[in-house]
Design a binder for these strands. Sequence first.
DNA 1: CGAGTTTGACCTGCGC
DNA 2: GCGCAGGTCAAACTCG
Length: 506
Amino acid sequence: MEKQLRRELRFLHSGDCPTQDSGEPDGALDDSGDHVKPLIKEMDFFPNHNQSHDCHQGRKIDNNNNSPLSSLLDSDVNIGLNLLSSSSGVSRIANEEKPKAEISHVKIALERLNEENRRLRCTLGQITKSYKELQGQLFMAVQKLALGNKTEKKDAVNGTSSPIMSVPQFMDPRPSAALDVNEPSASNDRTQDLSASPGKNMEVVSKEGEHQIPGKHASVEDGSDKTSQSWRPTKCLKLDHSNKEEQVSEVPFRKARVSIRARSEAPLISDGCQWRKYGQKLAKGNPCPRAYYRCTMAVGCPVRKQVQRCAEDKSILITTYEGNHNHPLPPAATALANTTSAAAAMLLSGSTTSKDGLSLPSFGYFPSLPYASTMAPSAAPFPIVTLDLTQGPNAVPFLWPPPSAATFPLPVHGYPQILGHSMLAPPKLSAVSAMQLWQRPVSMVETVTAAIASDPNFSRALAAAISKIIGAPKRNNGGNNNSSNGVATLPGSPQLPQSCTTFSAN
DNA sequence: CGAGTTTGACCTGCGC
DNA sequence: GCGCAGGTCAAACTCG
Ligand SMILES: [Zn+2]
């Protein structure tokens, strides 16, 4: 609890200036410095953590070398170091040759410089912080626009068609509070759709969240988020047999998942959330057990994830997320969630549901994505969007995902420069264009479709965004490997690249 | 002592 | 109806 609070605080101040004084026992939280544990227990989706620390030590950060901010930081730090070293030399000389008054003079000047250094860092941190806040607001506004536009269009085209699955519904990176703000159009739309069917639906029409059937889990989410409800134990689902049609249309919505495949020796990926393991199972056809986690960042958060190693390549970690958080997410987690949501949007934005299950026009919509395939309801009752981060730009993707999932082959290290500051000088399809695509309030469906169809590099841009998050395996900071302590090592220095992720992916 | 993990039991859906 | 597999529960256990 206390630890969590500390993480949270640290996270919240991630944009602030790192405490300059080296006396702070920060090593407890980020021991990335001296002792690197041989065993990586958790893969870090947010390599930025190290940046702050590296900044502390004046080390260069390759990814950010081109960034004005980071270069500022770097020079900042370096200046400090130079001053320190030179000043010490000066003082040594002064000890021998100059009067002590001059020494104190130099020291005062040095202190002044340090003070200024500190102040600049603070300023930079604050700027970054507000920048990120603005970014978040922009993102929400954009998504709201896109959502509204999409539902509107679908309404016009389909009339009384079954509910459209939207990304924020099936995996929303935002807290449900934020979702509520943006949701009305979607939920209203949904309600209208359902209301259009015969009156027997009235009972279940009211709201999707009101599938809170009294049962084992009902109490957990009572009073908490309702719109964020995205997964429901099948037992609860089963209780509602009053309307089969409705149930069918609900299934894909509830069960939609986003799966991330990434190479990692670590048993966990750090995605900014805290997870508690609640089960482990040996899945058939895979010698590696599958672990089940649920989000513990807030009481009753319905988000779960499954972690499993790939049977073919055990260095590949498959993390499958399911559900919506009902609490504020750290930007770190939001970045990942946003990115996955973006991929999900690509797949799902054109999807419709039928009584046979979900049918995804993937082939038609994603001609350039050989791994986007039609959902086979018999194979999996829910759509799975797979972000494959294991493949290099030229790698031949192996036949991993079953034909029931859509895969976006994403290179992890394809564009390390994007990791840094893709928005400034991106190669090929830039994150900027990706961002513009997402920002365009026209039709997200068409935008995304067009982008993918016309430029296969779109997925690379997405990959770049994610790879920014994934980055290098995290240095484990001690025992606690159960909860993802990515937050604990969040950067104390600006996180522009991370913010870019959020931006470009949505 | 509390929080998190482990692990066997249990529940449910689905195919035969 | 039966068996299998995925998913979840919860008591026991571990750890800090
Ligand atoms: Zn959560």
